[in-house]
Design a protein around this nucleic acid. Structure first.
Length: 275
DNA sequence: TTGGTTGTTCGTTC
DNA sequence: TGAACGAACAACCA
């Protein structure tokens, strides 16, 4: 499920191929995921590729940014002269001929074609999405004091606050779980009850796991081995601290990783070292 | 077969 | 008012 590091990985790749190209056609195969009319970009030139939290933005001008939200199963595939750039949720579609049964919108440019695929139709594409205005800063844009002051007054479990996009943008389930482990914080702890050291450790931990996520090109689900064989998808999954490690020994060597549901989401932690 | 899974959206409650 | 909480959404897979 694409979070900040996964989206950043796509952005870095698209930034190398899209800027300078003009949009020539925009074909919507599934109207459900498209908000408003996105064909305003046709005839316009790409100035850059940006990202705010988990939203990817193709920049066609100051008042014309095409926003993509991948939700759980969104992916982008860019094709030019038989060469491919892929990103987002890793599936066999990375290897399949495009368009596939999951292709929702096709964007044609001067030199290549961009396919937005989404299995579950949860993602969306919108011009100047209002959603980004509601986003809080990314961890990378915050100071430790800023992080602490925006978190410490909240009275719900710390892990859920980390995932609130209006407070901190870009953090999803994988990295929220791993950041709590880094800081030895029980994800259930109410956000206003951490020690001063835990607030600092949590901020540092969050930065650490996100940077590592970007370094490894994001995470690929354990069942996507087929994708990995072809050198596609990221490798952060080989560095998960607690996420998806239910029943395994804690990496600190004393304790077992337990799983429970918090806020309706799978939550992993070591009851020995996370307090 | 049915339940688990996922992030945002939206409705309800306090 | 705003915060907290939980269901809904779609489709795949075990």
């Amino acid at each position: 499920m694409p979070e900040l590091p996964e989206i950043e990985t796509v952005r870095l790749q698209l930034e190398k191929v899209l800027p300078g190209q003009t949009s020539t056609k925009c074909e919507v195969l599934s109207t459900k995921i498209v908000r408003g009319s996105i064909d305003k970009i046709v005839g316009k030139k790409v100035l850059g590729v940006e990202r705010k939290g988990k939203v990817l933005l193709i920049d066609f001008g100051p008042e014309l940014q095409l926003g993509f939200h991948f939700k759980m199963t969104g992916q982008l595939i860019y094709e030019e002269d038989g060469k491919r750039v892929v990103g987002g949720h890793p599936t066999e579609d990375f290897l399949n001929k495009m368009p596939s049964g999951h292709t929702r919108v096709i964007f044609e440019f001067d030199r290549g074609t961009l396919f937005f695929n989404d299995q579950r139709l949860f993602g969306w594409i919108e011009i100047n999405p209002k959603f980004v205005d509601k986003l809080g800063p990314e961890p990378f844009q915050m100071s430790a004091d800023q992080f602490i002051s925006s978190v410490r007054k909240r009275k719900k479990p710390i892990k859920l606050v980390l995932m609130e996009q209006g407070v901190i943008s870009g953090v999803g389930n994988i990295y929220a779980n791993d950041a709590c482990w880094e800081a030895k914080v029980n994800p259930r702890r109410l956000a206003n009850t951490l020690t001063a050291k835990q607030y600092h450790d949590l901020f540092e931990g969050l930065i650490k796991v996100l940077k590592e996520g970007i370094k490894y090109g994001g995470a690929t689900a354990a069942d996507a081995k087929y994708i990995d064989l072809h050198g596609l998808g990221g490798h952060y999954q080989d560095h998960f601290r607690v996420y998806d490690r239910e029943g395994e020994e804690c990496l600190r060597g004393d304790g077992i990783v337990h799983k429970f549901v918090l806020g309706g989401r799978g939550t992993y932690f070591c009851s020995k070292c996370q307090t």
